[in-house]
């Protein structure tokens, strides 16, 4: 199996159909990345589609140094910022209500659903910067070093931001919980 870097180098060299393999590898994590921010399936799908279009557009700029995922997340981050400049709001400023799961009858699950709903609301109230580091570290499984490379800041700063984001989130959640 080809590594991400090998595939992206092939895409850069003109074998652009190889992008399909990278798309299959990354569509779910990238969708999850945008979804954690936006809470909107439609916005997230549009952003993933645009992300891979940009990968194709900027393929000649791919150097092959470092992890492919770090490069991809950098583009994803810029995409979100562009989206913000265009629409005057960050993609994660539109919270979509989750459809209730009718099969979940048990009280325990209903309580859990309520907790999750509150957590989603709390996430929306974090600052974009807080949300970004929290999503990248906790949900996308990136290392602090990788996040530092994506956000152009030292590893220690990332760790501090993640901790502050957790503190803020917990504070907001407690208020929402009443």
């Amino acid at each position: 199996m080809h590594s991400d870097i090998e595939l992206m180098v092939q895409v850069r060299e003109g074998e652009i159909d190889k992008l399909a393999l990278l798309f299959e590898r990354y569509k779910k994590p990238m969708f999850a990345y945008f979804y954690r921010f936006s809470g909107s399936r439609e916005t997230s799908e549009d952003l993933v589609q645009t992300l891979f279009y940009r990968v194709l557009k900027y393929r000649k700029k791919y150097s092959g140094d470092g992890k492919f995922s770090t490069w991809l997340y950098r583009i994803a981050r810029n995409l979100a910022i562009d989206h913000y400049h265009r629409d005057g709001r960050l993609p994660w400023d539109t919270l979509e209500d989750q459809p209730a799961d009718v099969d979940e009858q048990a009280d325990r699950l209903l309580v859990r659903n309520e907790e999750m709903s509150l957590l989603r609301q709390a996430m929306q109230q974090l600052t974009p910067q807080e949300r970004e580091v929290l999503v990248l570290s906790r949900f996308q499984g990136l290392t602090y070093k990788e996040i530092g490379q994506i956000c152009d800041c030292p590893e220690g700063t990332v760790k501090a931001r993640v901790f502050r984001a957790i503190q803020s989130l917990k504070g907001i959640y407690s208020i929402l919980e009443g």
């Binding site: 798309f23 779910k28 589609q49 194709l56 907790e115």
Partner: peptide
């Protein structure tokens, strides 16, 4: 506890749109 936050799967429209673009 944040790990339990669910994320839906992307829909088929994403695949269609991507392969059309490709």
């Amino acid at each position: 506890s944040l790990d339990d936050m669910p994320v839906p799967e992307p829909g088929e429209e994403l695949d269609r749109a991507f392969y059309r673009m490709l």
